[in-house]
């Protein structure tokens, strides 16, 4: 709870926060519609990565504009960074699992350049693979 003197900047921040709230909620809603409407797993994955992440970021931005305290903003920044870092990883893991277990019907993919996915065995000398020393 921070006490801010009422003034021009408070109004500006509140209006900006309201806009961010509306845009973020709209994007989240669009993500919900897309998750139900889109026909394939990968198409749904798109929805969960892009509009959902930006929607959440906008909602958190609105929160940061409303509570103007640095400790809260620091935490919110942390949430945003976590979201940006983890959402693509989760999406990649899910869609890769879908491809490898054949849950993706590849008939609908127009140019399908998947080809033969090489089982990625790294050359033992060149790369520093995920091996514990």
């Amino acid at each position: 709870m921070t006490e801010v003197d009422a003034g021009l900047w408070t109004t500006v921040a509140d209006v900006a926060a309201a806009l961010c709230l509306l845009a973020g909620a709209f994007l989240t809603f669009a993500a919900g519609v897309g998750v139900v409407r889109f026909p394939s797993l990968l198409a749904r994955m798109h929805v969960v990565t892009k509009p959902q992440v930006l929607g959440l970021v906008l909602l958190l931005l609105a929160l940061g504009l409303r509570v103007r305290s640095w400790s809260a903003v620091a935490l919110l920044l942390l949430v945003v960074v976590f979201q940006l870092a983890t959402a693509p990883v989760a999406a990649h893991l899910v869609s890769r699992a879908g491809f490898r277990t054949g849950k993706v019907d590849e008939t609908g993919l127009h140019p399908n350049e998947m080809g033969e996915v090489p089982d990625d065995d790294p050359p033992a000398s060149a790369t520093s693979g995920p091996r514990a020393p």
Partner: peptide
Amino acid sequence: ALRPGPVPQGAVV
């Protein structure tokens, strides 16, 4: 997601 009409299937590139 919101527009009416068919939803594209996509491709792999």
